[in-house]
Design a protein around this nucleic acid. Structure first.
Lengths: 155, 155
DNA sequence: TATGTTACTTGCAAAACGCAAGTGAAAATA
DNA sequence: TATTTTCACTTGCGTTTTGCAAGTAACATA
């Protein structure tokens, strides 16, 4: 069964014999490791992309996004992103079935990370969406500001 | 068995019925998806961090790094990073047992990605390595230039 | 020559993933 | 009002990936 709880498992003493605390939830307190533990899978950043760049905010929209995430995985990732305060859920006042997902300020702050990942792939892999890439390359601060303004407008 | 070959599996037609090409290796040609498919796991970016920031260049160093990667996973990730031209392997001329791992120019270009991930975690999670964080915050272009200079010096 | 090091591979159990099908509540439709 | 559809999930199950422990071949060192 998929669990949405934070990973609490600690690695046993490594080959090098270094001890690790048993109370820490993370493998290490390195800031990069924190990002990797929260975002390092094949789906989380794509969900954030759909929210940040495409304005998606519902389960169905994420499910129908191009890469084709499985429904149980989507539910799991949304729960984890919410547990990490990257997104927030709110019932739609206009439709009792719907849940509206929104990026938190913490989630919005991932914009520079996504932006640099897009630029890296654009420089080194064969990818599409050249208009987005050119927009970022032309004026990165302006692009980031536009994301922020859209977020404020839809909050 | 762990495989280092690129994932060729294609998702079947999704719930939305959209067709996907069977010849593409990637789920989509979105640049962010490319980055996620190459880097989106719990270990690859940590290996790159160890090379970029700590100057690690051997299997044993990666294996003994703090987070405690398993030896089979390390071998698999090194092979994948090499297959993606992010790192290159060369035998150590001074020691026939050793393999020296180096970042390629493509791998070095991940510095802005790692940097933004560090800054995000520093802003939103409880992490250590404050000296690194302050160095980045003080002058990001200088920090990135320093990484590049070290890389040139050790090539 | 014996022992340690380095970069791996192999076997196996546990966890995560992916697909298909099902569920319950609310909304839309006949 | 009754029926169907939509939405946000959950469940079951087979496959894939991960993690741990142990082993191996080539080379270096004492």
């Amino acid at each position: 069964m998929l669990t949405s709880s934070p990973r609490l498992k600690r690695p046993s003493a490594s080959r090098s014999g270094r001890r690790r605390s048993t109370s820490l939830a993370w493998r290490s307190s390195c800031p990069l490791n924190a990002s990797v533990e929260i975002l390092g899978d094949r789906w989380s950043l794509l969900i954030i992309r759909d929210m940040m760049l495409r304005g998606f905010n519902s389960y169905k929209q994420f499910l129908d996004s191009y890469e084709g995430i499985a429904t149980n995985i989507l539910a799991d990732r949304l729960a984890k992103l919410e547990a990490n305060a990257i997104i927030a859920r709110q019932p739609d006042p206009a439709d009792g079935r719907k849940i509206i997902y929104r990026l938190t300020a913490k989630g919005l702050d991932l914009a520079p990370v996504l932006t640099e990942m897009v630029l890296w792939a654009a420089a080194h892999e064969k990818v599409e969406n050249q208009s987005l890439i050119r927009e970022i390359q032309k004026d990165k601060p302006k692009f980031l500001a536009a994301i922020r303004h859209r977020w404020i407008a839809t909050s």
